[in-house]
Structure formats: structure tokens, C-alpha cells
Design a protein around this nucleic acid. Structure first.
Length: 289
DNA sequence: AGTGGGACCTGTCCGC
DNA sequence: TGCGGACAGGTCCCAC
């Protein structure tokens, strides 16, 4: 699921259970996800208090009282389910809970003392492209996951001049440039397609050949589509029904993603799907130049 | 050094 | 109903 808006939605969903809480017990149900868990992972978490829950790009970070920060990436299919003790009869489901497939429940965290009261967090990830890591909080920005990461798109660090300079240095199609987390953090296949449509920029156009006014329009479109998606609770794809209340609904607002063969909402042309660097791109060849 | 392609892993859906 | 193939929200690694 997880591009920036989905990760932000998960972060907001987890905050009541985690912020201020102590991680009383951590259970790993396998030795690795995409990568092995760090040494003594559970031990280093247990007993720690969560001082803050933040997000950088598509990563969630939990600053701990131990001086370390827990780093979580959801990969493609990573999701958290939260059950509050006070709610045991009807578990409070958080975003993107796909249904009761315990086979892929890889990490269980019991938290105590958060605003939500005692809670159990279960990390489920069928494809295991997600991962977790620990790094010293004091030097988090230099941790390998963040050292080369581009500006946070919803912050002042993402400005027209810096964005234009980053694109000027790229000879790839703009689609590929925007997927590169070094250019701007947090975009994935969906929101790149949507932002390019909103800006009227062809996904095939070379990044270094977009004129300044259109670069500004593109930057604004990226910010707007991310803000709209967060507002909608992110996008939910391929999750079946039965999860109540907490699913994102931005997928209903897609202009182009997954809509090949349908008609462009702006000009009525038929939307296309092409493959760029092995991944689907959806766009309107009439509106996007 | 920048770029493109394949690998990683599992589930689902579609056509035959 | 069964089976093979394509495809899926991401990132890393390794050749050019």
C-alpha cells in the first residue's frame, strides 16, 4: 500500500497506542522480513518507551527512550493491526488490515501506557518486502535509509529551485525520476502517475527537458495530490471487504491510476497504460505533454 | 556516476 | 476445477 499518504495514515492510526507507551513485549515469529532483524532486536525494544512516532518518506520511525529509533518500512504489503485490550470483543482495526491470515503475522508488539491503553500491534506482510531496523536517534539522518533521501514533499525543504535542480540533473523519463527517492521522498507508482496527470506532464518526457513553469506546476501537483490523499486516509487496493471504518478511500479519486481504457475526466480521450522500467504507467496522451 | 533490468516473495486474477 | 502466466502500492544489487 504504502506510499507516503498510506504510511502517514498508518502512523496516525498507531500513534494513540504507541506514543508514550512502553513496549512491554516483542515477539518475532520468524528471523527476517526482507532482511534479517537486527541483532537482539526484541531485547533492544522491550522496556523502551516510545517518545515520538514520525514519518520520513515511506518510512515510519519511533524514537525510543533508549536512544535508538525503530525504523519500519511496509514494503508492498506490510500492514499493522491494533487490538486494544479494552476492545477485545471487537478489535479496533487499523488501516489496511486484510483479514485474518495469521500465517503472515511476523511481529507482535504489546504496548502499555499509551493514550489508547494496553494494545497489541501485529505486523503482517505477505510478500515480506517490508523491513525493520534500529539506528541511533542522534544520527538518524545519517542512517543508511535516510542519508541520500530527497526532501520531504510536505515540508519547506521541497521547493521549486531545489526540485528544478534535481530534475535538471536527470536524463531519465520524469516518471522514473519521481520514483527515485533521492529526488523527492515518498512518491510511488500511484502518486507519480496522479501528480503527472494533474500537472499535464507526460510520464515519458525527459526530466531535464521540462520548462521551469511546468516544473513549478508539477511540484504543486505533487504536494496537492499527497495532501488530498492523506485527507482521504490514503488509498486501499486489493483489500477485501469486511474491514470496517478504517480503509482509505482515495482510490475512488484516481484520475489515471488503474484506469487504462477508461475516459480521461478532463478531455474524454481514452487513458493508456504503458510500461516504464518494468512498471505500469497510466496517463492521458492528450492532456499530458 | 547514472541508468536499466532483474531479484526478492506471495497472492490474486484472468484466460484457456 | 485446474493450471500457467501476468501483475501488484518498493527497494536493492549488479551489470553496462
Amino acid at each position: 500500500m504504502p506510499e507516503l499518504p498510506e504510511v502517514e495514515t498508518v502512523r496516525r492510526g498507531l500513534a494513540p497506542a504507541l506514543v508514550g507507551a512502553t513496549l512491554a513485549r516483542v515477539t518475532l515469529r520468524r528471523p527476517d522480513l526482507r532482511f534479517p532483524f537486527p541483532d537482539a532486536f526484541a531485547t533492544r525494544l522491550e522496556g523502551a518507551r516510545v517518545d515520538a512516532l514520525s514519518r520520513r518518506g515511506k518510512y515510519m520511525t519511533a524514537a525510543l527512550s533508549t536512544g535508538e529509533t525503530l525504523i519500519v518500512h511496509l514494503g508492498m504489503t506490510g500492514r499493522f493491526t491494533v487490538t486494544r485490550a479494552s476492545d477485545a470483543e471487537s478489535p479496533g482495526r487499523f488501516v489496511y488490515e486484510a483479514g485474518g491470515d495469521a500465517k503472515h503475522d511476523h511481529v507482535v508488539i504489546e504496548a502499555e501506557g499509551g493514550e489508547a491503553g494496553p494494545a497489541r500491534l501485529v505486523f503482517n506482510d505477505a510478500r515480506r518486502f517490508g523491513f525493520m531496523d534500529l539506528a541511533p536517534t542522534a544520527t538518524l539522518g545519517r542512517a543508511k535509509h535516510f542519508a541520500a533521501m530527497g526532501p520531504e514533499p510536505l515540508s519547506a525543504a521541497f521547493d521549486d529551485d531545489g526540485f528544478a535542480a534535481a530534475l535538471r540533473a536527470r536524463r531519465t523519463p520524469i516518471k522514473a525520476a519521481l520514483l527515485d527517492q533521492r529526488v523527492v521522498a515518498g512518491l510511488g507508482n500511484i502518486y507519480v502517475c496522479e501528480a503527472l496527470f494533474r500537472a499535464g506532464v507526460s510520464p515519458r518526457r525527459r526530466a531535464d527537458r521540462i520548462a521551469a513553469p511546468r516544473v513549478r506546476r508539477l511540484r504543486a501537483a505533487i504536494v496537492a495530490v499527497l495532501e488530498d490523499a492523506i485527507e482521504a486516509g490514503g488509498s486501499t487496493l486489493r483489500d477485501f471487504a469486511g474491514t470496517d471504518g478504517e480503509l482509505g478511500y482515495f482510490q475512488h479519486a484516481f484520475d489515471v491510476y488503474g484506469r487504462d481504457g477508461a475516459l480521461c475526466r478532463r478531455c474524454g480521450a481514452t487513458l493508456r497504460r504503458i510500461v516504464q522500467s518494468g512498471r505500469s504507467t497510466f496517463y492521458c496522451a492528450a492532456c499530458q505533454r
